[in-house]
Design a protein around this nucleic acid. Structure first.
Lengths: 177, 177
DNA sequence: CGTCTATTTGAATGTACTCAAAAGCGGTGG
DNA sequence: CCACCGCTTTTGAGTACATTCAAATAGACG
């Protein structure tokens, strides 16, 4: 990127510090921003009409996170986003992103690749969820995302895997023996 | 698009007719092509090491389909792709796509939006899978994709929902009474 | 028409959930 | 600095959801 391009980018980004458990987006609200995690970690979760909480994604340093359908298509947010620990994020709003696409075509490419990778990850997750047992999925998760295991509670991980915390507890116990 | 752009696009696409049950991509192979469904319908499925078959996605007219990780990152295919009925597809290979990105920047945008939508769909599917019961998921599926219900077998739909055909059968029976 | 595969049905089994209670742990205020 | 409070995790018993296996029936295709 040229210097003037960098300047434009930074003028559109807004740094924000957030405390542990602070909420960036509340389910049902509209969301105008996408977040880049500079430091710390976040999670996105949904609460369905029976009160069941499901973690949809975690985000670590250098990840982007938002409710895409909400951000892109102005739908009400299906998830809330909260910090797992004290974190720093850069926020970029929808109109600024359009501005970037227009002024710096490179960004089309950048986000094309970003979405491409996000899609690939989701496809793999779908495949894993459907074709492996809970036990296999948990140990693969531990293996792939040790940072999340450290930062998230068991309850949150259980809700990411789609099982109850009680059941996840028994999966871990099984490993011991 | 200008006429010369259109000409370039068509020169890179290759039309292909395929019979019912014909396989476009075999799990484990490398895949150099992405397919656009002009007519008919396809499905992508994985067979895991215990022999369990899972349908990862269906594709109707106007959808794009391939194993993305394989296509983009040269990984061995995790899925096979086969036709549910006699179909017509356009195939575009990886290098031709790079050529398109380079010659017609509009295509960066086009595929950025394509991947964006694909990602949003996958996120929604993940959420639905985790937060609804099999019964709810089946009836939502019937409602959202009536064409697939018509074209795919029960067994294939069961494998998309992640349940056995026997169980899906009992879900349907329940509705009757 | 016959064959092969898909679907249905039911019984027995296993996987995961609910509920309740106990134990562990972390943060906060006195 | 420690005692307490609230929340997370563990444990277990009872229940519900989903699978496996086997057999009967129905459908689809050559």
């Amino acid at each position: 990127m040229t210097d003037s391009e960098k300047q434009l980018v930074f003028s559109l980004l807004n740094q924000k510090k957030i405390a542990r458990k602070e909420v960036l987006l509340r389910q049902g609200d509209s969301c105008k921003k996408i977040y880049f995690v500079e430091d710390g970690s976040l999670r996105a979760f949904n609460v369905n009409n029976s009160g069941k909480e499901s973690t949809i994604m975690f985000a670590l340093q250098d990840w982007w996170i938002t409710d895409m359908d909400c951000f892109i298509n102005q739908k009400p947010a299906l998830v809330s986003i909260e910090a797992l620990e004290q974190s720093k994020v850069m926020e970029l709003d929808f109109h600024s992103l359009q501005e970037l696409y227009k002024s710096i075509p490179k960004f089309e490419r950048f986000f094309r690749i970003l979405f491409q990778n996000a899609y690939i990850r989701e496809q793999q997750r779908a495949l894993q969820n459907i074709s492996f047992s809970t036990e296999e999925r948990y140990w693969k998760f531990v293996d792939k995302y040790p940072a999340f295991v450290q930062k998230a509670t068991q309850k949150q991980i259980a809700s990411y895997l789609g099982v109850t915390p009680e059941f996840l507890s028994s999966v871990k116990r099984k490993k011991e023996s």
